[in-house]
Design a protein around this nucleic acid. Structure first.
Lengths: 117, 117
DNA sequence: TCCCATAGTTCGGAACTTCGGAACTAAACG
DNA sequence: CGTTTAGTTCCGAAGTTCCGAACTATGGGA
């Protein structure tokens, strides 16, 4: 297929990161890759809570995360290995990812107090 | 005219903030309101560098920022006074705005510093 | 080797969002 | 009351996102 494009860390733009993470489903995908440390296949992420994300949507979410500079994707046999690029992003934009992920975590906490989700 | 809607701080969602600030023009508008401390009229912001933002677009950018919980808008005579809600947002999502604005500032530095995109 | 299964990508159309000009509303002032 | 200034609403064009169907790439058997 075509070689996957990954931006150099110095070309990563804050608006791309914010846009990528402004979709809650992408934020969850990224959170999982980030906390899994290094590797997670796309298919492992298709079931998200009670809803299923179609493959084509998942693929484009991964593309957005990749092109924003948030993850690194590499083919390994038949599946894709996804690593977060947290360390690089952290050195370019200190505190950004931590603050964003903490904000999501606290808003999930808050909504868990009342309703399901 | 209409009673302007402002979300309560506990209803503010991180995805709305990220979405609002993922547009560089809105980020610049917000940065100016934030650094001006309290008040800035819409019209003061229509000239942005070399490009002019039409009134209707500006109006909807303000609406997005307001509904994301980032600014407070109030009519004063014929013009609008816009205050940032930084302190409230900071107490709900500590470090978030600072990290985002610092990221933008550093990416502007980097692009001003020689190459440009 | 060929065929199949699995994992992801691309295509394309429907649904949604954003942009911006023209028309509108609201307040201030003569 | 008419005019000016500041901002909003309306609406069509342009752009983006979503997701099913068709496609491509890789690995494993017969």
């Amino acid at each position: 297929m075509r070689p996957l494009f990954h931006p150099a860390i110095e070309d990563v733009q804050p608006q791309a990161i914010l846009h990528a993470l402004s979709d809650p489903r992408r934020a969850v995908i990224f959170a999982r890759i980030r906390s899994a440390g290094c590797v997670e296949a796309c298919s492992a992420l298709s079931a998200m809570g009670d809803q299923i994300i179609p493959k084509s949507s998942l693929s484009s979410h991964f593309k957005v995360l990749r092109e924003a500079g948030l993850i690194h994707c590499e083919r390994h046999g038949v599946e894709m290995r996804n690593r977060s690029r947290c360390a690089e992003v952290e050195s370019r934009f200190p505190g950004l990812l931590a603050a964003i992920m903490a904000a999501y975590a606290s808003s999930i906490d808050a909504s868990a107090c009342g309703t399901g989700e």
